[in-house]
Amino acid sequence: MRNSNIMGRLAAKAACLISAAALTFSAPAAMADYPEEPIKIVVGFGAGGGADTLSRLVAKALERELGQPVVIENKPGGGGIVAATGLMRAEPDGYTIGMAVDSTFSLAPLFGGQVKYGVGDFDYLTTVASLQNAIVTSGDAPFATWDELMDHAKAGNKVSFASLSPATKMMMQYIANRDGVDLKIVPVKGGKEAMKEVLGGHMQIGWSAGAHQAYLKNEGVKVLASAGTQRLGLSPDVPTLLEMGYDFGVDGYFMFFAPKGIPADRLQQLTDALYKAAADPEVAKLAQQKMGFPNVVLTPQETTDEVLRMVGVYENLMAAAAGK
């Protein structure tokens, strides 16, 4: 199943490249006028962070593809919500695109409140890297596998869980309800904090979007489960939650998006260039070797499908949380 998935992606990539080539040859005149101004990427996170770093590298590659300067503007806030809200109102002329994570579109609108956009307000262009979602514990924890953890919890021990976000809280609560165990779900301020709490023994298990990878050597941390749809690159022996019978998996992607309504030919040209830029060897090297995030580049269709799939996953989790 994993293999076919990869093959599918490769086929899609090939198709995308071929269509791009075809378009470039068949209709050069129609596109000669785009892009004639610099392109702006609005990044939904602060300068200097992972999303920012990836965007800047992609921007460099995109400059080469499009022959126009690409500038980065940081609009941090609410995990991409501020940037997405701004983009929703931007002119759909192909000169302003955004960068955020998939949950900005799949999860955030479900929470309501100040989120004024919906999943359908944007075109999803491509992803650039995938997170490595995992549930981890410290090397000296009394359990080494997910089953042992659950046995420990079912024996009446309230296990403490370092939760990164409302989403991770919801997922753990879902698991706890399903298996009839009690957890102490403790909010922490990001992956590094979670690692500190887990390593220091203040909390027993924690969510990691990849921060744990630096501590895998010498068993500083142990991975109990992969929370994505596939096993983790660095922990291939650890099963996914899906494999263990839970009905969800969240991969998490850094992805590019644009306001709906960009003229089709421009959109095509932009996505093709972006697709190539995101798969640029330099971007891949940084993401994969240095940040520890696999450089997974999905086509626009796959990206959209992934966002829509996650809407379903989160809706189910929320319904379960509300109905308990």
Binding site: G49, G50, D52, G220, L286, G292
Partner: peptide
């Protein structure tokens, strides 16, 4: 935290 980001870009993963 920002400097940590730069570490990572330069292939250094701070840790034990």
């Amino acid at each position: 935290a920002l400097i940590l980001g730069a570490f990572v870009v330069h292939g250094i993963t701070p840790g034990p």
